[in-house]
Design a protein around this nucleic acid. Structure first.
Lengths: 216, 216
DNA sequence: TGAATGACAGATTTCAAATATTGTCATTTT
DNA sequence: AAAATGACAATATTTGAAATCTGTCATTCA
């Protein structure tokens, strides 16, 4: 098992493996070291504590999960479509994980419970992406004039039901798809620029109506 | 303690007391019986099992919490206002409970975790009330033509973040009020009847525009 | 005769002793 | 000299035997 030099990367990979095999409660630093054929003292040369190792593993996992979302954020489809796709992708990523391998999902949920800081950063990243899409929608005239950051948070909050791991126990229900679609419709309607608002308009130059129609 | 005859009501009251004092994990049927000055066998004459007793206590507690919501549902203010008040009241009821007495809240959350059926009924009741308000809003012309039941579910889902006990750990945050207000605005905008819809309208007789303006 | 009791079997919980883990660091290895 | 080791103290977890609890029911009580 002692292939090359001991690097943080090799330790991370081994840790992920051990975690997958043993579960979150039982995986020990000694196990990880053993998997690498080294003493557990060596692991502490690269990670300050078990918590630090745990955080690093979690970060890798979250990063992997976020990759498709980044792509959607940067896509060229219309902002409303992008928003729909992004939220659907977030939901499906979690849903597939929890339905596909409940144990592993539970493992990572357990990790996450003790890694508030990492989760905080993660959520911040997600909301920044949402805000980007919302801002694009305002610019294109598809969305009302709203505060992108605050609205991003509202959208994230509103969809928690479908992506927050603590609610995973509801995700196997048959009505879930319909409920999610219903919610998306409600949110997008709330976000849409009023076609011809009779009366009060936000006090902003309304020169940015929807200009181009892009393929969805 | 052996005042009058043993009734389900007296047992319920004692059970609630014991639960409050001992916590959810430690309260035993023997404790409840002891508090009443009877043998535990007598309790089983009135409740088939500890689970049944637990369910009954939970039902009483939930019923008490729902009372103000019923009042709001039946109020005479405009449907949008009623919806706002109802959702705010739901949020505040839970928030006050969890911030006011975290232990007791944890106790009841623990009960709830093993009483899916009772919780299911409870949620159904809540959604029915929401649907009533939504239907009223459609009738008054304040809301778009939507399916009241499906929309009630969407609204309930969208606000889970602020009333689902599993998310209580977020409720002490200072930004919570603003976030909730933001979400309410987004939902109510999404629900509002378009002032002058340019183009596609639902295939429904649109003879029910907002007729009267009531005091909010 | 209907309500209450308490002994009982089986299941669950508790608690303290035994074991394992984390994190450090003086020593060994390469 | 940098990397790795493993003995060690402090902490956390596991374990299993004893105690407690749930739910039943034959018997007692009023």
């Amino acid at each position: 098992m002692n292939d090359s030099v001991l690097t943080p990367e090799r330790i991370l990979a081994a840790a992920e493996d051990v975690l997958r095999r043993y579960g979150p409660g039982k995986a020990t630093v000694v196990d990880v070291a053993q998997a690498l054929g080294v003493s557990h003292g060596s692991v502490y040369r690269h990670f300050a504590s078990k918590a630090a190792l745990r955080d690093a593993v979690l970060r890798v996992w979250l990063e992997r999960m976020m990759a498709p979302l980044r792509a959607i954020t940067a896509a060229r489809s219309s902002p409303p479509t992008r928003l729909r796709n992004w939220l659907s992708a977030l939901r499906e990523a979690k849903r597939d994980k929890v339905l596909g391998d409940p144990e592993l999902f539970a493992t990572y949920s357990a990790l996450a419970a003790d890694a508030r800081e990492v989760i905080g950063e993660h959520v911040d990243h997600l909301m920044q992406q949402l805000a980007t899409i919302v801002a694009a929608g305002i610019k294109s005239g598809d969305f009302r004039q709203v505060d992108p950051a605050a609205t991003a948070k509202a959208i994230f909050d509103a969809t928690s039901r479908f992506h927050y791991p603590g609610m995973a126990h509801l995700w196997a229900d048959p009505g879930e798809d319909a409920a999610f679609a219903q919610l998306l419709d409600l949110l997008l309607t709330g976000l849409a620029a009023a076609p011809a608002p009779a009366g009060q308009m936000p006090a902003v130059a309304s020169g940015t109506r929807r200009k181009t129609v892009r393929p969805d």
